[in-house]
Structures are given as structure tokens and as C-alpha cells.
Amino acid sequence: MRVQRLALQLDKNKIAEEVDLNLLNPLIEKYKGKKGNLIPLLQGAQHIYGFIPDSVFRKISDETGVSLSDMYGVATFYAQFRLKPAGKHIIKVCHGTACHVQNATAISEALKEALGVEEGETTPDKMFTLESVACLGCCSLAPVMMIGENDTHGKLTGASAVKVVKDIKTKEIEHG
């Protein structure tokens, strides 16, 4: 069931994140008082911070009058929302039907091993978060993964997936 995600997301050793709440002001200004504003508000907040920190929930709630429980209800229902900080690059390995048939499991396994994390986790250097998605719509290129917003790679093998990730890492190190 969808809300099982709650347990996964509300981590035991929660990290208190220092974030600049002022960044939220234009967003709140735009959606305050509008009907159906909750999801766009959360999406906007996640866009700013990469996840939705506790303090952000409280500020939005205080200033728009949406109750905290409504906000958590929505945030935990939809797969898109993150309640924990994510790495700089989010790797989404597709586990849709087509990718499953073409052995997407091997891609995830290889990446888990290479990065030393489980699905849903972030590497200690905060560089990568490994996730899975239900279909990226590039099924004819299965198995597929997407890094960030629009960097999609198809016809992967475990080895080629690891190479893509390693290349990003090398680049990051070179550019400091």
C-alpha cells in the first residue's frame, strides 16, 4: 500500500537540515489561498531543496493554513516526494514491465554493488541516490535508467550502467 512509504522515509536517525526558508516566499506567495495548491506547493518546495525538510512543512502550514497532517498525508502518498535529502545525482533505474523482462534487476544489483548502497539510499559522499521507477516511457530501449531530470540511458547492461555512473563521478572529481 502506498503509505507504507512513510515508515521508510521517516528515518530513525533524522538529520536536522539547515535550510534557507526565505527561498520559499515567492512560492507561497504564488499559491497561497488558491484551491488545489497543496501538490504544487510541495513540488515547488522539493524543487528548491531537493527534498522537503521538516521546517519547510511547518512554514508552509503556518503561512497557508493547510494543516500539517494534510501535508504529510499528501507527501507520503505520492512517490515523487522525498522527506530525506538526496544525493546530487538521482539515479532512477526503471523497473517497468519492459525493463523487468529485459533484466532490470541486474542493473540495480550492479549499481548497488558499485555504489555500496541499497535502493532508496544515498552514498556517503552525497553524490548519488539510487532509486527505482515504474516506467520512464522509453520501453523499447529497455533496460533504461535516468540520471537527474533528463539524462536517459538505454539498452544497458550492469557493466555499462556502472560505467555511466563512474564517468559522472570522475567528471565531478575533476571539476571539484
Partner: peptide, 24 residues
């Protein structure tokens, strides 16, 4: 309106709830 990742939101009444900003 951008969805937020929930298969059930393809169902008509859930989709409407989602546009209204609720859980789908």
C-alpha cells in the same frame, strides 16, 4: 497539472482528487 507519481491517479475519481490537491 503535473502528476506526482501514483498509478491509481489514472482512475478518474482519484485523478480528480489529485488535481484538487488531495491524496489520489
Amino acid at each position: 497539472k503535473e502528476g506526482a507519481g501514483a498509478f491509481v491517479c489514472g482512475e478518474e475519481t482519484a485523478l480528480i482528487a489529485s488535481i484538487e490537491g488531495e491524496r489520489g
